[in-house]
C-alpha cells in the first residue's frame, strides 16, 4: 500500500468560486464528487480537471451544511431545516423531508455500511434516517438546548465509529456525547471545555464550540476539533485545537494545538488508516492543514491552505486530498514530487 507521508503533502491546484463551499463528499469507488454551497445549491464537480465545471442541483433555500453519498443517493441537509435525497444520475430530487429538524441542520454523516444517514441540528437532536427509504429510525436527544448563560446551544457535528457501534455528537458548549448505535442509549459524556469561550465581562457572549469529530480506525479513540480559549471573541483569535479521548475510559489522551500562525477553527479531522496520525483542517481569515502525530503527541507539520477549509476528503489510498472552503476548491497530493528532468547540454543552450 502507498505510504502517505505528510512531508510530501502539497497543493496541486485551486479553483475560485464566488460562493462559500461548505461541504463535500466523494465516492471512492466512482470518484464522483459533490459539494454543498452557501448559494443553497449542491453541485457535481470533477476536481481533477484543469477547469472544473459545476453542475447545479437546486432545491435548498439556504446554506448546504451536510452532504453524504450513500452509494445510491446523495443526501443533503441545510439551514433550511430540510433533507433532500438526490438521484445521482438525473440530479433530480428523489425525496424531500421538509422539516427534518426544527432548527438549522449543521451536518450529516453515514454509517460505514451506508444503510443509515445521521443528521444533527440546532434543535439539539441527532436523527438517524434509513438511507434507502428516508424513514426516521431513531432520535438521540440529551444535549441541552439553552446554555447556562441563556443562549441557544448548537449541535455541530456527528460521527459513527468504523465498527458501526458508536455515535458521537458534539455541541457549542464543548460537550461530547457517546451513544450506542443499536439501542440509542447515551453511554458517556465527555467534554473539552477549552473549546468554548464564554466572555462574561468584555463582550458578554460566546465563541467556539466543538466543530468536528471523528473516531480512530480501530474505533477505540475519538478526536474532537475546535478552537482554544479566545481573549477577544470578535475574532477567531486562537490556535486550532484537537483533543483525543480514549472511548472505553473516557480519558483525555492528548491535546494538540497549532501555533499562532495557524489560528481558527478545526473544521474537520481525518485519521490516517494506520491510526498513527491525523489531519486537521480549518482556519480563520486564512486556512491551514495540520498533521498530528498520535504517538509522538505533537503537531508534526502545518501548512497554509489557499482558503479557510470547511471540509476535506482524502482518497482511500491516501494519495490525493480535495478540500472546499471560502471561495475555493483545492486539490492536494501526497505523492512525492517527481524530480525535475536534468537539463541536457543542448536544452540548456
Amino acid at each position: 500500500m502507498f505510504q502517505a507521508d505528510p512531508n510530501n503533502f502539497r497543493e496541486l491546484r485551486t479553483t475560485s468560486r464566488p460562493d462559500i463551499i461548505l461541504r463535500m463528499t466523494r465516492n471512492d469507488d466512482t470518484g464522483e464528487v459533490f459539494v454543498g454551497s452557501s448559494d443553497a445549491k449542491v453541485y457535481q464537480v470533477d476536481p481533477m480537471v484543469e477547469q472544473p465545471e459545476f453542475l447545479a442541483m437546486e432545491g435548498h433555500t439556504s446554506y448546504v451544511m451536510g452532504l453524504v453519498d450513500t452509494g445510491k443517493y446523495i443526501v443533503s441537509g441545510s439551514y433550511d431545516k430540510s433533507l433532500i435525497w438526490w438521484n445521482k444520475e438525473t440530479k433530480q430530487q428523489v425525496r424531500r423531508i421538509e422539516m427534518a429538524h426544527d432548527r438549522w441542520i449543521r451536518n450529516l454523516t453515514t454509517t460505514p455500511d451506508n444503510k443509515f444517514v445521521l443528521s444533527v441540528a440546532d434543535d439539539m437532536v441527532c436523527k438517524i434516517w434509513d438511507a434507502e427509504t428516508g424513514d426516521l429510525v431513531r432520535t438521540l436527544e440529551s444535549h441541552i438546548k439553552v446554555t447556562e448563560h441563556g443562549f441557544p446551544n448548537m449541535l455541530y457535528a456527528v460521527a459513527v465509529s468504523p465498527d458501526g457501534k458508536l455515535i458521537a455528537t458534539v455541541d457549542r458548549i464543548a460537550k461530547i456525547k457517546l451513544w450506542d448505535f443499536e439501542t440509542g442509549e447515551e453511554l458517556k459524556e465527555l467534554e473539552a471545555p477549552k473549546c468554548y469561550t464564554w466572555d462574561p465581562k468584555a463582550r458578554i457572549h460566546s465563541i467556539g464550540g466543538i466543530r468536528s469529530v471523528t473516531f480512530s480506525p480501530d474505533s477505540t479513540k475519538v478526536a474532537v476539533g475546535g478552537i482554544g480559549q479566545i481573549g477577544n471573541v470578535d475574532h477567531l483569535a486562537a490556535a486550532g485545537r484537537v483533543e483525543l479521548f480514549e472511548v472505553a475510559s473516557g480519558e483525555k489522551l492528548h491535546m494538540f494545538e497549532g501555533d499562532d500562525k495557524h489560528k481558527g477553527l478545526v473544521e474537520q479531522i481525518i485519521f490516517h488508516p494506520s491510526g498513527k496520525w491525523l489531519m486537521a483542517v480549518g482556519g480563520d481569515h486564512g486556512g491551514w492543514v495540520q498533521f498530528l502525530d498520535v504517538e509522538k503527541k505533537e503537531v508534526v507539520k502545518q501548512l497554509k491552505a489557499p482558503m479557510h477549509v470547511h471540509q476535506m476528503v482524502v482518497t482511500s489510498d491516501f494519495k490525493m486530498a480535495f478540500g472546499v472552503g471560502h471561495n475555493r476548491l483545492a486539490v492536494w497530493s501526497f505523492e512525492p514530487e517527481e524530480p525535475m528532468e536534468e537539463k541536457t547540454e543542448e536544452a540548456a543552450g
Binding site: F151, M154, R172, I204, H205, I207, V233, D234, H235, L236
Partner: peptide, 21 residues
Amino acid sequence: ARAWWDSHGQNFETHLELVTE
C-alpha cells in the same frame, strides 16, 4: 446598551445568540 456585536468572526453564531436575546 447591549454589547458587544462586533462579529468579525463567526457573525452567524454571534447573531444567533444576540438577536435571539
